[in-house]
């Protein structure tokens, strides 16, 4: 490819999720569960212990009938870069079971290394991490659909969204076999992106101007990777988590709901940090 980046430029995989398109249908959640062998129990209504790497939150403008407006917000792991890879969760893990990849920008979770202290869960501002309180049990016969690409986890470890990392590995192997060096945009897509019937999720390399996600987000490296798209925002952007999941909305109340603003602050205004 002519416009290919040179070998060695780090990638930074990320998402742009259009909340004006998202319908809250949950197909992304289930695509993720099916792709990543996520277990389930008879009762999954206790949401704090319901393992959902991707989860839909419902936002509301807080108004009364008939002025109420609602909006759904799909929340995968935000793959925080923090400052130079110091993601909130990575920074606290004593077992190095979670790590920020400088090659892909993906925050990994090495479940075999995790010993379940759950510091990372406390550190993650997005509740993207889940603890396995029980061993997974599939009803009789259902283990037949388990995918060999992702190991089922067991009691006592933390798990979270990996941006379907195994898909990256497969795509990378394929690219190498075909003599290519970089993974083409369409060759590596997450399961949720692929499934979303509303086409609300765009996934790709934020560093690659060829990728749609870059064109939508237009990240500004001189301004902490903030988006130059007026519709875009990140969750708790002002805390400096430097996330790689961008959200888009034309509704100001939605953009405001993504961060904690004081009444007088303008949406997008950078907060002063208190010491």
């Amino acid at each position: 490819m002519k416009h290919e980046q040179t070998h060695g430029t780090p990638m930074k995989y990320g998402m742009a999720i259009d909340l004006d398109k998202c319908t809250g249908c949950g197909a992304c959640m289930v695509a993720c569960m099916a792709e990543n062998n996520i277990p389930f129990k008879e009762d999954e209504s206790e949401k704090l212990v319901s393992i959902t790497w991707m989860r839909i939150f419902k936002l509301s403008n807080g108004k009364s009938f008939p002025d109420l407006d609602i909006c759904y917000l799909p929340r995968p792991c935000q793959h925080c870069e923090g400052h130079g890879g110091h993601s909130p969760c990575v920074s606290v893990c004593p077992a190095t079971a979670t790590d920020y990849s400088q090659e892909t920008g993906i925050v990994s979770q090495i479940v075999t290394r995790c010993f379940g202290c759950r510091y990372c869960m406390g550190a993650c501002p997005y509740h993207a991490r889940y603890f396995n309180w029980w061993d997974p049990v599939w009803p009789d016969g259902m283990e037949k659909y388990l995918s060999p690409n992702v190991s089922p986890r067991m009691r006592g470890v933390v798990e979270k969204c990996s941006f379907c990392y195994h898909r990256y590995q497969l795509a990378k192997n394929k690219a190498y076999l075909n003599g290519g060096r970089r993974v083409p945009e369409e060759a590596y897509q997450t399961a949720c992106t692929q499934a979303c019937p509303a086409g609300a999720i765009v996934f790709g390399d934020l560093n690659n101007p060829e990728h749609q996600v870059h064109q939508i987000v237009k990240p500004d490296p001189d301004n902490g990777n903030r988006s130059r798209n007026d519709r875009a925002f990140r969750l708790l952007e002002r805390t400096g988590t430097n996330t790689k999941v961008y959200y888009l909305s034309s509704r100001e109340w939605v953009r405001r709901a993504g961060d904690n603003y004081l009444a007088h602050e303008k949406t997008g205004q950078v907060a002063k940090l208190h010491h």
Binding site: L48, F57, G85, H86, P88, V90, S91, V92, C93, P94, T96, D99, Y100, Y119, M121, G122, A123, P125, Y126, H127, L235, L236, R238, T239, A257, G258, D259, N260, Y261, A271, L273, H274, H275
Partner: peptide, 22 residues
């Protein structure tokens, strides 16, 4: 101290630490 009350009501308080060797 970072204030982040408004995103999700159940957000747990932040923790800070140092990165161990990746």
């Amino acid at each position: 101290k970072v204030d982040r009350r408004s995103f999700l009501s159940f957000v747990i308080g932040g923790a800070a630490g140092t990165a161990l060797s990746p």
